[in-house]
Design a protein around this nucleic acid. Structure first.
Length: 901
DNA sequence: GTCACGACGTAC
DNA sequence: GACGTACGTCGTGACA
């Protein structure tokens, strides 16, 4: 036995009734083709079933069994066997070879035997495996297989996710597994053209088998059959009954010539599987492919391990020339800390000829040979600024910023593998180079120094060049190798244009915004903080007073104890870990149960939240230039939006008075103003456009108060007669509709009954019929193709839509509804940013873009440019797309962010 | 001390 | 569970 075999006792062979599933999948899944028209419904159903069953059963050995001219041998017994079967439908035939191909890339053995059916192949293998001590799992939905069930052979129906052993067969059929063939012979099979004994149905067959055991005994003692009609039928159908039993009995002695060790389960060939699934457009399945495969493919060269240190100006120049000649250059900077402030310690380089370099620049180690930074910048300036030399790497925005610190401009950002991977699957949490290399190059990257990313260890610059050269150079090489593969997939998914014309051009714009930063009036913020500190302490004391003792207001378990055990207030909502104490609950407790504690807590929470998150934190993040430099993440959200962190400047308060006060601390330099331009109702406008809803389109074309108009539609009144309550309801519906709003959600939000909420939603959909249609179509299409997309082709893979867990599937539906809207808004804003940035540069204005908050851009403009910038921003943003509705942009200016609104 | 997680709350 | 997308703070409990 081969060493690779698991211990005997743990060996499990899964045998798939592949041929059976092909037909089942074909009929279970509605017609489906790739964008090129290749039918794939059976392939998809089959593939899903196999992957699911493998996950469920975790077999050690696997085989797929197929029919091969399957009726030939049985027709020797009875020429009419399956004679009335029609040829497979014409859109199924081309799927047979594709299914074999799926088995191939999943590294699963496919077995068949000329003239025999999959049943016989499985029967043979099952017996063989049983004899060798295997547990056998037959994956099938066909009841005929019950005949081979025994202590070691179990059936598994992936459709029902159910296993079937001896006891299950007995319970279901009322007979032993080995009697199943007798049963089938007695009752016949119209579909397969197996003759039955007339007058013998399921019940009679079972009775007969109880009495006689099997067909042979029954025929030998037929005179003992009590009912004359049945007896006569049996006597006159002797031959056909014997034949029927032969037909339904599996042949378990085929000469397959396969050793069970050949069936050891192997990991899928991830690369080929990815290619095939991409070709078949099984995007939802792509995500579930395993990240690694055991064997390295021989056609992929190992990642470069020999790295040349570049320590002379001549070598630098040679490197720059080589890059210029080839037109590409892949770079990974060695730095630590924030990219907008970090000095460049070194630079990993990969050249298109497959060689790698490391340029040490600021290693502190004694005796480290390195070129002076000035010589480096002089030698590299041109090639870095040459857009014709395409730059590659991982997170080129960080590279751009770090180089900018050295006075270097990076142009031609093109192969950012983080960004490219993000566009392929924006739902993915991370696009770490380590992971991409593992998945797509089957290589482990050497570890970076512990100080980078983590906090411990020596500073990066205290490492010698030799210690880190390989790590950075190999990273550059990995990025260089990944880029072509990622571009190929982008082309296949129709995403390459989005990458080339939107995301990659945006990258330097974001870099400039981060580098610019926004000025914070720390003194002003400090004053506010001191004042709030007093208020927070007062509220805290009030809470302790109300509780009768001191406790940690920040601890929800402690708070829950006080509220629900000591004060015996009713538990209105529960979370996973215990009773909830969130704002909604507190408000109810304050209102309906007149809880002094709840009332004080609400105020405490509001104050302490703003204090800890903003007032106390923002000042610590002010850089030496007196400004705050956020980091924008271009590869973070599932919809295509940007996100912001360190600090997050996209959730600075605005709704409360204290919130606005915090915004007052974001100010313009002397002689400048902040200009804010934001899209009005952009998502609702996009919904109108995408859904092509005539009523909503008309409302926006007339620049109506959209919430009043909606209220008028819902409540059947004239827009001018809409009252405040009606408008409030309509506003909530308008906001919620693109999020997959439910009656329950609307009722809790508005404090109305669920019936009432249902009625409101129903009226809404009646008046805005296009919206309902759009929502339904979006989910339906997403289920079929596995993704949703924006107006500009940005895609989000949506695997969970087919989840068996209804909650998960419904959440995925809501996300699917929302993404095209939110994502298209994000696309538009990104286009607007490109347009605005280009216009500002072209007109050589001193105004800078500082912040983006999803539907708002914040500029810092010299006083003299304010009016021009207002006009420029409105024009650029509003004309970024020609839609069925106008895009409206509101704009304002002032000394602070609050004043600009 | 660090980490992961959940609860909560801020924004659009 | 019940309305989508993010990120940050705090408390908690596991682990070192």
């Amino acid at each position: 036995m081969a060493d690779t075999s698991p211990p005997r006792s743990e060996r499990r062979l899964a045998l798939f009734d592949a041929s059976g599933f092909i037909f089942r999948a074909y009929h279970a899944i509605p017609p489906l083709t790739t964008s090129k028209g290749v039918p794939t419904n059976a392939v998809l159903g089959f593939t899903r079933m196999v992957l699911k069953a493998l996950q469920e059963l975790k077999p050690t050995h696997v085989a797929l069994a197929f029919d091969k001219s399957g009726r030939v041998e049985r027709q020797k017994i009875d020429p009419t066997y399956k004679a009335n079967r029609k040829a497979p439908p014409e859109d199924l035939t081309p799927q047979f070879p594709l299914i074999r191909k799926v088995g191939d890339v999943l590294n699963l053995a496919s077995l068949d035997a000329e003239g025999w059916e999959a049943d016989d192949v499985i029967g043979t293998l099952a017996m063989q495996a049983k004899a060798e001590g295997f547990q056998v799992l037959v994956v099938t939905s066909d009841k005929d297989f019950m005949q081979i069930v025994d202590e070691d052979i179990t059936l598994f129906d992936p459709a029902k996710n159910k296993r079937m052993g001896i006891a299950d067969v007995q319970e279901k059929m009322g007979i032993l597994p080995k009697q199943v063939r007798d049963f089938l012979a007695l009752v016949g099979d119209a579909v397969d053209n197996v003759a039955k004994v007339p007058g013998v149905g399921d019940k009679t067959a079972v009775e007969l088998l109880h009495q006689f055991g099997d067909v042979e005994t029954l025929l030998a003692r037929v005179e003992e059959v009590k009912k004359p009609k049945i007896r006569a039928a049996l006597e006159s159908h002797r031959e056909s009954l014997v034949r029927a039993k032969q037909l339904v009995t599996f042949n378990t002695g085929l000469p397959l010539g396969v050793k069970l060790d050949d069936l050891i389960r192997r990991a899928p060939d991830a690369t080929r599987a990815r290619d095939l699934f991409t070709e078949l457009e099984f995007f939802a399945l792509l995500r579930d492919l395993p990240a690694e495969e055991p064997a390295a493919r021989p056609d992929v060269a190992p990642l470069s391990v020999t790295t040349t240190l570049v320590t002379t100006e001549a070598e630098l120049k040679a490197m720059a020339d080589a890059a210029k000649a080839a037109g590409t250059l892949t770079l990974v900077p060695a730095f630590e800390g924030m990219p907008f402030a970090a000095p460049l310690v070194g630079l990993g380089v990969a050249l298109p000829d497959g060689t790698t370099r490391y340029v040490p620049l600021r290693h502190q180690q004694l005796g480290a040979t390195q070129v002076p930074v000035a010589a480096f910048t002089a030698a590299m300036k041109d090639v870095l600024a040459d857009a014709a030399v395409k730059k590659g790497g991982h997170d080129l925005k960080a590279l751009t910023l770090v180089l900018a610190n050295e006075g270097l401009t990076l142009e031609g950002a093109h192969d950012d593998v983080e960004l490219l991977s993000y566009l392929l699957n924006p739902s993915r949490r991370e696009h770490a180079l380590e992971d991409l290399a593992r998945e797509r190059l089957r290589s482990e990257l050497p570890a970076l120094p512990a100080s980078v990313g983590g906090k411990k260890g020596r500073a990066l610059a205290d490492h010698g060049p030799d210690e880190v050269a390989a790590a950075y150079a190999v990273r550059a090489d990995a990025a260089r190798r990944l880029a072509p593969e990622l571009w190929k997939e982008l082309e296949l998914g129709g995403l390459a244009e989005l990458a080339r014309t939107l995301e990659l051009p945006l990258l330097p714009v974001l870099a400039r915004m981060e580098r610019e930063g926004v000025k914070l009036d720390v003194t002003e913020l400090g004053r506010t903080s001191e004042r709030v500190d007093v208020e927070v302490k007062a509220k805290e004391a009030e809470c302790h007073q109300a509780a009768g003792h001191v406790f940690n207001l920040g601890s929800n378990p402690q708070l829950a104890q006080v509220l629900y055990e000591e004060q015996k207030l009713p538990i209105l909502k529960r979370g996973k870990t215990g009773p909830s104490t969130d704002q909604e609950v507190l408000e109810k407790l304050a209102e309906e149960h007149d809880s002094v504690l709840a009332r004080a807590l609400i105020e405490y929470r509001g104050l302490s939240k703003l204090k800890s998150t903003y007032l106390d934190t923002l000042p610590t993040l002010v850089a030496k230039d007196g400004r705050i430099h956020t980091t924008y993440h271009q590869a973070a959200t599932a919809t295509g939006r940007l996100s912001s962190s360190d600090p997050n400047l996209q959730n600075i308060p605005i709704r409360s008075e204290l919130g606005r006060e915090i915004r007052r601390a974001f100010v313009a330099e002397a002689g400048h103003q902040l200009v804010s331009a934001d899209y009005s109702q952009v998502e609702l406008r996009l919904l109108a456009h995408i859904a092509e809803d005539p009523v909503l389109i008309e409302a926006f074309r007339n620049d109506e108060d959209i919430h009043s108009r909606t209220a008028a539609e819902i409540f059947g009144v004239d827009p001018k007669d809409v009252d405040r309550e009606q408008r409030r309801v309509a506003k909530t519906v308008n906001f919620g509709i693109a999020y997959g709003l439910s009656a329950h959600g609307l009722s809790t939000r508005l404090g109305i009954s669920q019936e009432n909420a249902r009625d409101v939603i129903e009226r809404y959909f009646t008046r805005y019929a296009g919206i309902r249609q759009y929502l339904e179509d979006t989910v339906e299409k997403a289920r079929k193709v596995g993704y949703v997309e924006t107006l500009y082709g940005r895609r989000r893979l949506m695997g969970d839509l087919l989840s068996k867990n209804r909650g998960v599937a419904q959440a995925a539906e809501r996300a699917a509804i929302n993404m095209p809207i939110q994502g298209t808004a994000a696309d538009l804003m990104k286009k607007a940013m490109l347009s605005v940035d280009a216009a500002l540069r072209e007109q050589k204005l001193k105004t800078r873009v500082l912040l983006q908050v999803h539907d708002e851009l914040l500029f810092e403009a010299p006083d003299a440019e304010v009016d021009a910038v207002k006009a420029l921003a409105v024009k650029s943003m509003a004309s970024v797309a020609e839609l069925k509705v106008p895009l409206k942009v509101d704009v304002g200016a002032g000394k602070s962010w609050a004043d600009a609104h």
